[in-house]
């Protein structure tokens, strides 16, 4: 499920995330964490990146129609890009508010959908960019400075 290619001091790894598949949910974030630890990235940054990756992955599983999580590491930056094929976020400002969630009853029963995902990702990151279009999809770019 993962593909990885490097070009000159650059780790790129892409994980494809299936919508609604809780059996594999969290695996990509766990791999990202392992990889960053092995690279020797400092513990605090690994932890922030791992939390952000986990939240982004869960968002893809719960809210999206499926997408991917991509990790890019170079000696200066860690970038995590979460991209999906829809449905897109209607009101980004609202989605960024703590406690706001559009999660289904099913997801809430499982303990997700507390409306902390996106705000938590933002809090963990050094730079955070979100773009979304209804009917098209959402793209998160989460950056950590090394």
């Amino acid at each position: 499920m993962a593909s990885k290619q490097g070009n000159g001091g650059n780790i790129r790894q892409r994980y494809y995330i299936e919508a609604g598949n809780f059996a594999t949910a969290g695996e990509a974030a766990s791999n990202i964490k392992k990889l960053l630890k092995q690279l020797g990235v400092d513990g605090a940054t690994v932890r922030r990146a791992a939390i952000a990756a986990y939240e982004a992955e869960m968002n893809l599983v719960i809210h999206s129609l499926g997408g991917s999580l991509e990790l890019i590491v170079n000696p200066e930056l860690i970038t995590i890009i979460a991209e999906d094929q829809g449905p897109g976020i209607e009101d980004i400002e609202k989605a960024m508010q703590e406690g706001f969630s559009t999660a289904s009853e099913h997801a809430r029963e499982l303990g997700f959908g507390a409306g902390m995902g996106l705000p938590n990702i933002k809090r963990c990151s050094d730079e955070f960019d979100i773009q979304s279009e209804v009917g098209k999809g959402t793209r998160l770019e989460i950056t950590f400075i090394l």
Binding site: G6, L35, Q38
Partner: peptide
Amino acid sequence: YPKPVMKLDEDLSVAIKKMEEMD
């Protein structure tokens, strides 16, 4: 104290190169 003995290299850019090679 932490004992980060699982990491590939002290130097991050070397570690990145090693990981690419590993891959």
